[in-house]
Design a protein around this nucleic acid. Sequence first.
DNA 1: CGGGGTGTTGAAGCGTCTCAAAGCTTGTGG
DNA 2: CCACAAGCTTTGAGACGCTTCAACACCCCG
Lengths: 276, 276
Amino acid sequence: MSSVTELGPRRIPSYVDSANQHAGGVVGIATVRDPHAALAHPSVVMCSACRLRAECLPGELERGALDALAGRLVSTRRKVAQGEPLFRAGDVFDSLFAIWTGFFKTVVMTRQGREQVTGFQMAGDLIGLDGIHAERMTVDAIALEDSQVCVIPFAGLQEVAREAPPLQERLHRLMSREIVNDHNSMLHLGSMYAEERLAAFLLELAARLEARGYSGSSLQLRMSRGELGSYLGLKLETVSRTFSRFQAQGLLDVSHRRISITDPDGLRQVIDGAEM
Amino acid sequence: MSSVTELGPRRIPSYVDSANQHAGGVVGIATVRDPHAALAHPSVVMCSACRLRAECLPGELERGALDALAGRLVSTRRKVAQGEPLFRAGDVFDSLFAIWTGFFKTVVMTRQGREQVTGFQMAGDLIGLDGIHAERMTVDAIALEDSQVCVIPFAGLQEVAREAPPLQERLHRLMSREIVNDHNSMLHLGSMYAEERLAAFLLELAARLEARGYSGSSLQLRMSRGELGSYLGLKLETVSRTFSRFQAQGLLDVSHRRISITDPDGLRQVIDGAEM
DNA sequence: CGGGGTGTTGAAGCGTCTCAAAGCTTGTGG
DNA sequence: CCACAAGCTTTGAGACGCTTCAACACCCCG
């Protein structure tokens, strides 16, 4: 029980009021040129010293490009309490956000209130790429646990990218990866049974956690059954039933949001075995 | 019947052998530095004179940036016959492709042969953004009618983008749009009934055609029921039945792949009316 | 004019959803 | 510290929508 994967700190004692960070529906207003923001969040971000470097925007950049990032770009951090939005659809797009600690979901919504979770993001992931197109966010980004994000003003990022080709390359690859991920989700949603979708999701989540140094077999889900169901195109009851069935088959142990994958190969067979 | 929308030329008489364009699994090898390709496809592309400028990569760029595009970048065109691949998943990524005439589908496939159509692309659309991430294409791009594409070597595009900020901006917006589109597809796949999915698809397709100067009410589908079903996460029979139901309700007229939308507001109500 | 690919339609089966109730966990206030 | 409330999860039973399997119609192309 003590080796269970935890995503970031369990509890972050006190947060600045997250409401005023969102005033006027504008997000990402905190840039290096904004003294108020600098005061509110005096922490100066140093990508070169960050443990998440490899997963995050910097990637494998060499020193020069890294310093350009650290010095001119990522200047502030923002805290977002569990359940609070980092931004909402319709907010003006200003900045990308790199998750430093915590866990988020992104949700698209129709006028009629129909919801679809489009992804779950963890430390090192980038949020906000969808906003570039129309300079407006198109999704809600909600913290599923107390989180901290690095604010990356996009105009500045583009500027630096022009001078540092490796950074430009990296940005393009990350945007492209987002597209590939979405295609993968579409594959799940469009042509798989509930068991296959859940199995694929769990294996992918475990792999992402493992890439960040956590256990790939014992995981703590940060989303509810309903949120997971939305992402997978299933109702929460179906998600719950499918978990129970997996447990009955000896593939994993479920205790609410604590999942232990006991037979990863079995899960892989759930995906591979069931032919079209 | 004579005002029916046609996408591009009805028939392009003769094509160069498309097989050798795909030799070795490498696509997009035809760059300005490749004399053979230049010989095979001597047409020099002039974005500034192209009717699709606004929809395509150049967007609303001013003259200087446009000339940079035309002169240094898009140097060759490729023809792809109906049913033939522009590229396949696993091919080395070299270039983006801008559709000049024709219509494509992109398809992801699992090892077990499960397929998912991830999108349909028409004149002005960009194909290949998914390949940037790992320098390999991740989808098959198949021509659904005889088509011609402009080849845009990506290394060169990045280079020019560094010198022409408006072009850089444009590229980022297009990549972001792709992400937004995919999220929209996920919404359809994850939380809609067959009728809603098809109605949303038809309205969106009509809007895209209209933006390109075609009729938004009378359209000629380029994909089979099966391909459309794959994109919508439905079986071909379900697509066919849903078309029939729409016709019975007086929303549209169906005759194989010829669709006349007679009641667009009715179609919108199909999406909006059915609450969660 | 015939054949193959494509589209339509019907009937039965199956997977997921809906509705409902009960169990469990967590947080809060008495 | 316990009790209770609120929210989340589990489980069951029946309904519903889509798929499957099958047969037939249609259109295009040679």
